[in-house]
Design a binder for these strands. Sequence first.
RNA 1: CGCGGGAUAGAGCAGUUGGCAGCUCGCCAGGCCCAUAACCUGGAGGUCGUCGGUUCGAAUCCGACUCCCGCAACCA
Length: 484
Amino acid sequence: MSKENNFYITTTLPYTNSDPHIGFAAELIKADVIARWQNLAGKQVVFNTGTDEHGLKIWQQAEAAGLTPRAYCDPYAARFASLKEALNLSFTNFIRTSDRNHEQAAQEFWRRCAKNGDIYKKTYSVKYCVGCELEKTESELIDGRCPLHPNRELELIEEDNYFFRFSKYQQPLLDFYQNHPDFVVPSHRFTEIKNFIAAGLQDFSISRLKAKMPNGVPVPGDDEQVMYVWFDALVNYISTLGWPDDEENFQAFWPAVQVCGKDNLRQQTAMWPAMLLSAGLPLARQVLIFGFLTANGQKISKSLGNGVDPFDLLGKYGADALRYYLLTEIPPFEDGDFSEERLIQKYNADLANGLGNLVARVSNLLEKNNITTSLRADDGAAAVYLSQEANLSSYQFSRTLQSIWQDIAACNEELSARAPWKLAAKEEIAAVLLPLAERILGIATRLQPFLPSTAQRIISQFTQVQIIKGEVLFPRLDAAAKTA
RNA sequence: CGCGGGAUAGAGCAGUUGGCAGCUCGCCAGGCCCAUAACCUGGAGGUCGUCGGUUCGAAUCCGACUCCCGCAACCA
């Protein structure tokens, strides 16, 4: 398989200290559409996701639960992995940063950066709140004090940590950006990171004292230190391909398209690229920075616990309805608000009244009039259509869906205008219905990356010789169903 | 003057190079009766955040201002 026929996309790895929320589901769904689209276009696709299981928070929670970090994360990892069936995702790889081969890859990555002279030891002073028994970052402090214990002075703790020579890569990163104008999407995020890099870089800490926090990958050649969670976590993008042992697979699929939330901008578009430059590896193909979701106008926060539960929604509405809502109503790169009322509105207006009703009308008329067909799904035509959709190439999923929905509306108009139910001759009725059946099949084929399960149902229904009405695709919802 | 985004109909949004302000939902009226109280046609509803400038012409370009939001090295 030549490299041109391969495509690799990866999400970020969520930190497993809580259940999946709607924002991460949105990231997975957008990545899935891209993966399925590329696959439909004939590419061999690697689609990676997984869980990030190192670091302090998981260590503390595991300690409290009396479990090893790995055992503590097991049910969380299983829950994230189960999103595959729940959201109807096509990911091929699910990596846990606690996997043995990932830890080995992170160590090899470290050695390469070290060999290149980019890792050095430095005394690092951290602010420590005795009240919380926690290290505090500047952003957590208010007026230089812990907001939870404002009466206590913060202690300064000094420890030796390894640092990564980020500063060395300022110019190489700027050069790379210059030569790769599509590296970061959307462009305003690219501007943001360029400005950040141009302002100057500080080396960052990439290890922690093992005695204080052992939940990390051991630093090669130093028993006292483990890697800071970010350093090893980013390596998952290549360790999932089998790097460094499986050079052939790595070469076949890397570089990736990486997707992430806007909070991850620096890690994904600056720190990780600098690390790759240091290790002598090619940088990612492209990084897509998605916006954030609010839930009913409120910021989603793990600590507030107001994250909308995707499993709950999927139980009520199904994967395709949630996918459709998130893809059409939420702009991919800007912040958006998740509202269950809007989901129900879109479901009724577009899925039940639009697509579902059209399928029911046409299939019912075909069945009642005993009209037979000989249609075949044409994935090739769908791939051509989607590849020519400039909106999809720029990841404007909602616009592609809008254009498909214009076809649905056009079919409904034509059906009403030609009113085959008023005709007597079977040939005349067939002359109206057969082209419509073909258009519906085309619509379903193009819908495959977006609504995979619905698309499959329509395709199998409309490739029968005698198309029958069958079950309603999207039963209309009562707005009151929300609370049910 | 730290960086970035946003403000367009009741709500959610689109408006790529300046050229009659659009889409969806909701609302009103009519039609249809195949279909999931669905479908089709028409209608009401906007000073495009404010002020100024460029132009024959500005939602769009330029300047100033107001208000919201995110980031500022844990976070999808």
